[in-house]
Structures are given as C-alpha cells and as structure tokens.
C-alpha cells in the first residue's frame, strides 16, 4: 500500500493554496502596518459565508461568490484600518495595543457572522452551520475543480502582487512606505492611503481564500479561528520580512500537515488524526528555535 496517495497530494496542494493566500495577507500587513492582524481569522470566515450565502440564495455557481468576497472583505479590512487602526496610530499606540484592536475586531466579526448564520436558519430555514458546497463543484480530469481554482488563484494573485509591487508607480510608492514611512511622507506619498490599499489587498486575499473553503470542506462560524494558528505559522515559517516567503511557508506547512498526518496515520494508527491541530504549533516552535526569521531569512553560507 502506498503511503502517499493521489488524494493526499490533492489535499496538500489545495490546503497549501488556501494557507498561502492567507499568509500572503498577514505578511503584507506585517510589512506595511507592523501589526500581526489577528482579524485575519474572521476575514476568512466572512469570505466563506459570502460564497455559501450567495450559492444557496442567488446563484447556483459557487464561484460567483469569490470576487464578491474579495471586494467585500477588502472593504471590511479598509474599515478596520480607517476606523480603528489609523486613529490609534495617530495617537502613537504600541504594537501590542494595535494587536488587541485587531483581536477585538475579530471578536466583533465573529458576532456578526454568527448572527448572520442564526438569521439564515431562523428566518429562511436554511442550514448554516457545518455546511459545505462540495456537491456543487465541477470535476476536471477526475479531480475536484477546487484544486485547480485554488492553485490558479494563488499563482495569479502572487504574480499580480509581484507585478504591482515591482512594475507600477503605485507599487513603488507602496514599497517605499513599507521601507521608511516618514521619508515617503516627506516626498509626498500619502502613506495612510498606501496602508489602506495594502489592507484592501490583504483583506481581499483572505476573503477569497475563505470564499473557496466551502468547496473543500465543511464551514461553520469558527472556520477562520480554527485555521488561525496555521495561517500565522505559514507566515512565520516563510519569514515575516519577505512577502513571497508566505507562499513557501504555506506549501511547507500544508505538506507537513496533510501528508505528514496521512503518513503517520497509516504508520502509527488513525488516532493521530485527532491531534492534527498540534502540527502547526510544532512547526512554528521548531521554526522559531532554528530559524526565527523564517525560510526566506535563511542564508546559505558559501565556502571560499
């Protein structure tokens, strides 16, 4: 019996694509606003409920909700930035205070999503917890469509982000405000606008990743919270200093998580699967002890 089956690899690539999309946003925000955005968890949840709700009420095509989720969650992220973080930044709040603010925002969004889910059930008699859209996905070459869509989205988004940051004036202004915000302000870049744009992109990416999740597994209002440790782990494994490290971190964490669990299950016993949520913590701990700056921070020393 093969230790690693085709379905394990499909699971790994899909899961990694989600993780990478989420980690990209976390790293981007860490670079621009110097804050670990704990509200990322609820961004993902909101995205998931956007596709779910739009599929059962408006359009039978689940992918219709994906762009909607990008825009909606992007706007939510900008709201968090302008309504909460920007006033705090102007008062010189510490990083820790900004982090609590994002955590509080996460709690608010958790309340909103739960109210939405309750409302779907009570007012429209629709199921809203532990639901999935796997049934309405298409098949391509015998594999679930979500595999190709998730990977395609990841490739497109990283490429678009790369183009934006390297070949446009806006991207150069964005990078300048990441590197040195006061100097950028001095040469006339609207730094707070640049930060807002980065929040829109990061929120949009998280919303899009969330929007694809119902096609891959069951969702409930805790789906983002449940993935929180994993997305931050992917971001740190990749290295918080390098945006594209996030993609690498997502692929690696997905590999250890999905393939590692599957191999351990067949070697040790199926009970291992219960402890799967521990894996990102072990990877995170190992990374912080061995290479605190993440994979992208590792420099190979060359011999003379």
């Amino acid at each position: 019996m093969a230790l690693v089956t085709l379905s394990t690899i499909v699971g790994w690539l899909t899961y990694s694509a989600f993780l990478s999309l989420m980690a990209l946003g976390i790293t981007l925000l860490y670079r621009t606003t110097k804050v670990a955005n704990f509200a990322h968890a609820s961004f993902v949840t909101v995205g998931a409920y956007v596709t779910y709700t739009s599929t059962i009420t408006l359009s039978p095509n689940p992918y219709f909700g994906v762009p909607v989720a990008f825009v909606l969650v992007g706007v939510v992220a900008v709201l968090l930035f302008y309504a909460v973080l920007e006033p705090m930044r102007r008062r010189n709040s510490s990083t820790v205070m900004l982090m609590i603010a994002t955590l509080s925002f996460d709690i608010i969004m958790l309340g909103v999503v739960n109210i939405h889910a309750d409302y779907l059930t009570n007012a429209y008699v629709l199921p809203s917890r532990n639901v999935t859209l796997i049934g309405s996905d298409f098949k391509f070459m015998g594999q679930p469509g979500i595999l190709f869509v998730a990977l395609g989205t990841l490739v497109l988004c990283s490429a678009a982000l790369y183009m934006l940051l390297n070949f446009t004036t806006l991207g150069i202004a964005l990078r300048a405000s990441m590197e040195n915000s006061s100097l950028s302000e001095a040469i006339g870049i609207n730094v707070s606008m640049m930060l807002a744009i980065s929040w829109f992109i990061a929120g949009g990416l998280a919303g899009m990743a969330g929007a694809l999740i119902p096609l891959w597994t069951q969702i409930n209002p805790n789906v983002g919270t449940f993935l929180m440790a994993s997305m931050f782990c992917a971001s740190i494994v990749g290295g918080l200093e390098q945006i594209y490290g996030a993609v690498l971190g997502g692929l690696l964490l997905g590999l250890v998580d999905v393939v590692g669990t599957s191999v351990l299950c067949s070697l040790v016993g199926p009970w291992v699967a219960l402890y799967e949520p521990v894996i990102p913590l072990l990877v995170l701990s190992a990374t912080l002890i061995i290479a605190p700056r993440g994979l992208a921070g590792v420099r190979v020393r060359r011999g003379k």
């Binding site: 909460v84 705090m88 709040s93 205070m97 609590i100 603010a101 509080s104 925002f105 996460d106 709690i107 608010i108 958790l110 309340g111 909103v112 739960n114 109210i115 309750d118």
Partner: peptide, 15 residues
C-alpha cells in the same frame, strides 16, 4: 452574539 459585538466595540473604544 450581540454581547460579542458590544464587548469588541467597548475594547476598541477604550483603546
């Protein structure tokens, strides 16, 4: 859930 929203808002206002 209203309690969640209320407490989150209070925290942000304090901050």
């Amino acid at each position: 859930w209203l309690n969640y929203i209320l407490l989150g808002l209070i925290t942000i206002l304090i901050l």
